[in-house]
Design a protein around this nucleic acid. Structure first.
Length: 364
DNA sequence: TCATGGCGAACTTTTACTTCA
DNA sequence: ATTGAAGTAAAAGTTCGCCAT
């Protein structure tokens, strides 16, 4: 018996993002996965032989692309690898529906209106007081500014802790963590933008800082609204509010998306393991049932000569079979296992599932 | 005190797409 | 209408520093 298992990632559909300044369609990789599982005795029957082609991206241009992701499965089902036509080896094929789409709520403040823009003052601060702004986290401030930075933390409800970095081994983290920078060297400010890590000598330093809990929480809140940034507005606004460089915000979102995808992959793997176990068990049961029926046929050659009205359709292989009379042997066959629930668990990355528990979706 | 693995920030490369000449 | 270069954004993969154990 061979079990073929393919895990396509259903990638590459397009989304027209309302929040992008340009009306271009941004390629978004779906976190929804498309499944096709084949379980059979013959090696050629295992599904997944054409997975390479299946993984070709499909363009979806309307706004509700997440929902449309479900439609992809029909094609894959129709291409099931049921070539194993041998009666004994007809594989059990299971096509798993993709996960329920993540509701994409509109982010009220980022798109076009000025309400969410921090440039206009109050409403755009998203809870951050103006006093919390104005400190470049990666700018090495003068001594008096360092002290004032601490005072910012005392006045802000976020109590931001800003890591201050310097080139070379210099590293500064406020908020009780170690502050190890070479204050005596008098090196100037570390430049903030991408590609500026090279100092005048061409030496490349890697900036490492730990975002404060408040900064991370704020970014998480934004990520909940949109997993992608509006580069011209949201990124800059977040960077300004959190006193981070836009590049830092951008990187954070990239890494956050990667972490979400990784977690979803882990959930999918666990789910597929359970699918495999269930299908294997059913496969064993069906084989046992088949052997019993054959033994019954051998012992009673007139057994199959039944009226046509007793023909039934096998729910697994969709082939016509004759329903045996209710003999003791037939009644001893257990009833079929209910179909495996083809709803895939959804990873909730925000610990705010409808049920209040992480990774525990609300009952439908 | 040292070793180690996990985590996360930052970086580089790849890929897909759009724009424009 | 077609084509190729340039630009852009995100994914994918990697590196590396910090920190808990």
């Amino acid at each position: 018996m061979e079990l073929g298992l393919s895990l396509g990632d259903g990638v590459g559909f397009l989304r027209e993002d309302n929040n992008t300044e340009k009306s271009t369609k941004q390629k978004i990789k779906s976190t929804g996965l498309d499944f096709c599982m084949g379980l059979g005795l013959n090696s050629s029957a295992a599904a997944g032989g054409d997975d390479q082609e299946r993984e070709k991206p499909q363009k979806i241009t309307n706004e509700d692309d997440d929902d449309d992701d479900d439609d992809d499965d029909d094609d894959q089902m129709s291409e099931g690898d049921n070539q194993g036509s041998d009666d004994d080896n007809t594989p059990v094929q299971l096509n798993l529906l993709p996960l329920a789409p993540v509701p994409r709520r509109a982010l009220p403040n980022w798109s076009t209106s000025d309400n969410g823009s921090p440039e206009n003052g109050s409403s755009g601060n998203m809870g951050l007081p103006v006093a919390a702004r104005g400190l470049d986290v990666n700018r090495f401030p003068p001594a008096e500014e360092v002290s004032s930075a601490n005072s910012v933390g005392t006045t802000s409800p976020f109590h931001m802790e800003f890591g201050l970095l310097r080139r070379g081994t210099g590293y500064l983290q406020l908020g009780g963590q170690k502050r190890a920078f070479e204050a005596a060297t008098g090196n100037d400010v570390v430049e903030s933008e991408r590609g500026s890590d090279d100092d005048e000598n061409g030496l490349q330093t890697r900036k490492k800082l730990r975002l404060s809990k408040e900064q991370s929480a704020f970014l998480e809140e934004s990520f909940k609204e949109h997993s992608t940034l509006n580069p011209q507005k949201q990124k800059l606004a977040l960077a300004k509010q959190l006193n981070l460089r836009p590049r830092q915000v951008e990187v954070w979102f990239q890494n956050r998306r990667a972490r979400t995808k990784l977690k979803q992959t882990e959930v999918d793997c666990e789910y597929l393991k359970r699918c495999c176990e269930t299908l294997s068990e059913e496969n064993r049961r069906l084989h046992k049932e088949l052997q019993e029926l054959r033994a019954l046929k051998t012992s009673n050659p007139f057994y199959m000569q039944l009226p046509a009205t007793t023909l039934t359709m096998c729910p697994s292989c969709e082939r016509v079979a004759t329903a045996p009379p209710p003999t003791a042997a037939a009644e001893s066959i257990p009833k079929p296992i209910p179909a495996f629930p083809l709803t895939r668990p959804r990873f909730y990355p925000f610990s705010q599932t409808p049920t209040g528990h992480p990774n525990q979706p609300a009952p439908s």
